[in-house]
Design a protein around this nucleic acid. Sequence first.
RNA 1: GCUCCCAUAGUUUAACGGAUAAAACAGUGGUUUCCUAAACCGUAGAUCGAGGUUCGAUUCCUCGUGGGGGCGCCA
Length: 581
Amino acid sequence: MEKSHDIPKLIGAELCKAAESLPPFTSDFDPQVRAADPRFGDFQANGVLPFAKKNGENPRDLAEKLIAVLPQREDWVVSIAGPGFINFSLSESCLHQWLEDFSREKEIKDSLAIEDGQRIAVDFSSPNTAKQMHVGHIRSTIIGESLSRLLRLQGHEVVKDNHLGDWGTQFGILLLAIKKNGANLDDLGEEPVARLEDLYREGNLAVKESEDDLRQAREELVKLQGGDEENLRLWQKIRDLSMDSFEQVYRLLGVSFDHAHGESFYRDQVEAVYQALEKHAICQEDAGALVVFHPEHKRFAKQPFIIRKSDGASNYATTDLATLAYRSREWKSRRIIYVTDGRQRDHFEQLFLTAEKWFDAEGRTPPQLSHVWFGTILGEDNKAIKTRDGQPVKLLDLLNEAIRRASEMVREKNPELAETEIRRRAEAIGLGAVKYADLSQDRTLDYVFSWEKLLAMQGNTAPYLQYAVARIHSIFRKIGPGAEDLIKDARAPQTDAEKKLARKLLFFPLAIEQAIKELKPHFLCTYLFELATEFSSFYNQDKVMVPEPETQGIRLLLCRTTRIYLEIGLEALGIETLEEM
RNA sequence: GCUCCCAUAGUUUAACGGAUAAAACAGUGGUUUCCUAAACCGUAGAUCGAGGUUCGAUUCCUCGUGGGGGCGCCA
């Protein structure tokens, strides 16, 4: 048979082809091939059922007709069950062949890349300058990084952009506070950004209490936006200090960006936004502000999208429009993905509606726009973690605590290890645990922050997956250089554990595909955990070190493929793996 | 007032309209002269309520209950 990494896709294509010349099937028939419950086979096609319903046919009869014209092949056994499920059970030889065809990193990675990759901009992390990152920032950063890696794995050209909040009204207040305190930005102590946060808090209190301070803060902002040299110098310094502070976090998390333009980058492009939207009559004046309504929309017919405040200043709606236009124009992004908190859903819906009208009016195709939103991290009171009152846990503190706890476990298991090696392993394990805890559940869910949840290292966690990888490396170290020859002589999977593990391996391409389609990394996490569980079970049942070379061969082949899938999968999640734990 | 999201074992979660609702943690009972016990094998335990659509509903629709979010000059 032709080599196909993605067997369900192959089955789906065969079903579609068979349906082509078989009335009442039409071209909109979707076979819906999925992983099956092992009781029924390896894959199941459910698509006949909804199709029959839509067309008033008997689903069971339709399924019979379809498999009657399906070419017979030795790769699988086809059967019909229940109201019209079509089940496929792979033959031993087909499974064996598949394992041999896709057991190396290169073949696997090549097969994952699609032909028509796009240029995609991913907008994520995006903290505000002059503030420290706290636990609330972890989601956008981790999810955005993982989605970027997944999309690259699929062959897309991804441009990662950290859209910093570096140009808001808060700078008037902060600049005033700095000047009133006579603070020297070159000498703010050990944690300069923490000091900036304090200054901002003081300034915020002052402008609430004093009319005069409020007026002065506004003046500082106007001066900054007008290009005042002193204020610009201070602003730049604040931005640099903030970036240094963010970099500490990004380095630990293994997160990187191609750009960190931030809102300030677009400050000279907002005029063009007003002009274009006015020219095309997309916006209107309302109560002194420039706003966009969407009369055709249930909600946004009356809920305005404010793109220019009544005092003439721009806001985030304006910079977001300018940013979107820039990414389309300069980066030729065919698609833009925004990874932000779900509370901004209205904003992005309005942004997308407005942008689409703008592009349409100019006869251009708008980029495909996706808002990948996630639930809020809540405090113990079930309310969102706030910066204002109560100090949320700093992200750096969370990460350091994760490393500290992992260090203890590593040291306990390997008392002789050098400190640098303990640190290296603890970073992979502790930070992996934190990332996995966030990535492994559906991103749209809110969750209450808890150390216990984020730092768990047993059960369905990253360390469990890393442990499986380390065990496989250990086996290959013990076998030595003869492993390749043994794999060449592998027999087909025979024992219960071998067959179950081999079968689980088949579903890897599906997991990747689903995670990308829905832009939800948790689908991949679920699969990797199931794979690791299947491996652990196999590991306990069937020893690799046995006398028969063909048995060793298949077990080594299964181990190697499992290891590669776990490594590719964890890499796509942004989680490191280790050869020893 | 308008609108959006959420509700699954004790707890935290999974289930793309599909077959007997799946795990982890916490319980509980077992496994180590054997490739790393961060493990493995048992055991017990759940779909907020009421209707509806469907051959089939945790999933879709309506109503209700409970929790949270957004809605004119913050991002």
